[in-house]
Amino acid sequence: MVLDIWKRIKKGDFAPVYLLYGKEAFLINETKQLLLDRLLKEDEKDFNYTAYDLEETPIEVALEDAETFPFLGDKKVIFLHNPQFLTSEKIKEKIDHNLSRFETYLKEPAPYTVLVISAPYEKLDERKKITKELKRTAEVVEAKKLNEHELKSWVKERARGYGIDIEPSALELLLTLAGTNMFMLSSEMDKLALYAQDEKMIHADLVEKLVSRTLEQNIFTLIEKVVSRKLDEALRIYFDLLKQNEEPIKILALLSGQFRLIYQVKELSRRGYGQQQIAGFLKTHPFRVKLAAGQADKFTDEELTNLMNLLAEADYQMKTGGMNKSLLIEMLLFRLNK
C-alpha cells in the first residue's frame, strides 16, 4: 500500500529502484516529491537530480548516469518518465531501448542511486520480461484511487504533518463536500491547517465554513434538498449556480448523472452486490457509491423511474425546444419535488 511506502521513505528506508504506475497522478507526484525531498538537500538537487523522458532518450543513457558517482553528496536521484515498453497499450515508440542493459542494472543497481520509474498507465504488460523483473526487484507503488479507509488515513496523516488533528465528523464532512479528488483534498487540507493552528484541531464547523464546494457537490446537496422536499433551498442552490455562470445544460447533465447513479446503486444493491463491488462495476469511487446508497433509500423504485423519465424529457426539450434553459430546470425542480 502506497501509504506504508511513504512511511518507510519518511523514516529514511529507501529502495534502490521504485516503480510508480497507475492513473492517480497525485500519488505518483507525491511519491516522487517525497523521495526527492528526503534524499537530497536543496543545494544538491542541481547536481544529483536528473529526469529523463524515455520517449526522447534511450534508457541506456539514463543508466550510464545512474552508474556515475554523485557529485558533492552521497546520493543521486534519477526519474525515468514514460516507459512505454512496460505497457501493452498500442503506442508507436520513437526510441529503441536496450532493455537487456536495463535488466542487468536491476540485478545489481548502483548503491548510491535511487532510480524512479514513473509509468502513468493503468496496467502494465505482465507478459514482458522487463515488467516481471521490475516487479520482482523494485519497490512497486500502484497509484490507484484510494478506498474510503485509505483516503481517511491519508487525510489524518496529512493533518499530523501540520501538527494538528481532525475530528471524525469533520473528516466525514470534508470528503462529502470536497469529494475524492486528492489534489483538491490536499489544497483544502492546506487551507484548513492554517486556520486550525491555534486549536490544533480541525472541527466540522471549520470545514463547513472554509471548504469549497465542487459543482458536483452542489448538485449532490441540491438533490438532498429535493429528497427532503425543501424546494426553496433547492432553488436557492440552483440560482447560486446560475450566478456562478454554470451552464443549465451542464447542471442538467450532472443532475441526470447523480440520479442515474442512485438508480443503479439501488438496483445492484437489490441484487446482492456490496458497495465495493458496485463501485468496481460502475467504475466510480466507493465513497460516491456510499453517498448514493444513502440517497437511494429515500426513493421507491417507481419514484426513481418517474424521475429518470422527467430528466430524459427535460434533456430532450433543452436540446430541441425553444424554451429558456434556466427556466426549464426551474420547472423540473418543481416537478421533482412533487
Score class of each variant (00 low, 15 high):
Leu3Ile: 07
Trp6Glu: 08
Arg8Gly: 02
Lys10Tyr: 00
Lys10Phe: 01
Gly12Ala: 10
Gly12Ile: 10
Asp13His: 11
Asp13Tyr: 03
Phe14Ile: 06
Ala15Cys: 06
Ala15Phe: 03
Pro16Asp: 12
Leu19Pro: 01
Leu20Ser: 05
Glu24Gln: 10
Glu24Thr: 02
Ala25Leu: 04
Thr31Phe: 00
Lys32Ala: 11
Leu34Trp: 02
Leu40Met: 11
Leu40Cys: 11
Glu42Ala: 14
Asp46Ala: 15
Phe47Ile: 08
Thr57His: 05
Leu63His: 07
Ala66Asp: 00
Pro70Leu: 05
Asp74Leu: 10
Lys75Cys: 03
Lys76Pro: 10
Leu80Ala: 07
Leu86Arg: 04
Leu86Gln: 12
Ser88Val: 09
Ile91Thr: 12
Lys92Glu: 15
Glu93Pro: 12
Lys94Val: 08
Asp96Ser: 15
Asn98Cys: 11
Asn98Thr: 12
Asn98Phe: 09
Glu108Tyr: 10
Glu108Asn: 15
Glu108Ile: 08
Thr113Cys: 13
Val116Asp: 06
Ile117Asp: 02
Ser118Leu: 09
Lys123Ala: 10
Lys123Cys: 01
Lys128Arg: 14
Leu134Asn: 02
Glu139Gly: 03
Val141Gln: 04
Glu142Ile: 02
Lys152Ile: 05
Ser153Gln: 13
Trp154Ala: 08
Glu157Arg: 09
Arg158His: 07
Ala159Met: 07
Gly161Val: 09
Gly163Cys: 10
Asp165Gly: 12
Ile166Tyr: 00
Glu167Met: 13
Pro168Arg: 06
Leu174Tyr: 04
Leu175His: 01
Leu175Met: 13
Leu177Ile: 15
Ala178Thr: 03
Met182Ile: 01
Ser186Ile: 01
Met189Ala: 08
Asp190Glu: 15
Leu192Gln: 07
Leu192Asp: 08
Leu194Glu: 13
Met201Ile: 13
Ala204Ile: 06
Ala204Arg: 14
Leu206His: 01
Leu206Thr: 14
Glu208Cys: 04
Glu208Lys: 15
Glu208Ala: 13
Leu210Phe: 10
Thr214His: 11
Glu216Gln: 14
Glu216Gly: 12
Glu216Asp: 14
Gln217Ala: 13
Asn218Phe: 07
Phe220Arg: 06
Ile223Trp: 05
Val226Arg: 00
Val227Tyr: 01
Ser228Glu: 15
Arg229His: 14
Leu231Pro: 06
Ala234Ser: 13
Ala234Gly: 11
Leu235Asn: 05
Arg236Lys: 14
Asp240Ala: 08
Leu241Gln: 12
Leu242Cys: 12
Asn245Gly: 02
Glu247Ile: 09
Pro248Phe: 00
Leu255Phe: 03
Ser256Gln: 11
Ser256Met: 07
Gly257Phe: 00
Leu261Met: 10
Val265Tyr: 02
Lys266His: 08
Leu268Ser: 03
Arg270Val: 12
Arg271Lys: 14
Arg271Ile: 01
Gln275Val: 04
Gln276Cys: 01
Gln277Pro: 05
Gln277Leu: 08
Ile278Tyr: 01
Ile278Arg: 02
Ile278Ser: 04
Gly280Glu: 13
Leu282Lys: 04
Val289Arg: 06
Leu291Phe: 05
Gly294Glu: 06
Ala296Phe: 11
Phe299Gln: 06
Phe299Asp: 04
Thr300Lys: 05
Asp301Gln: 10
Met308Gly: 00
Asn309Gly: 07
Glu313Tyr: 09
Asp315Gln: 07
Gln317Trp: 06
Thr320Cys: 07
Asn324Glu: 14
Ser326Leu: 08
Ser326Asn: 14
Leu327Trp: 00
Leu327Lys: 03
Leu333Trp: 03
Arg335Gln: 14
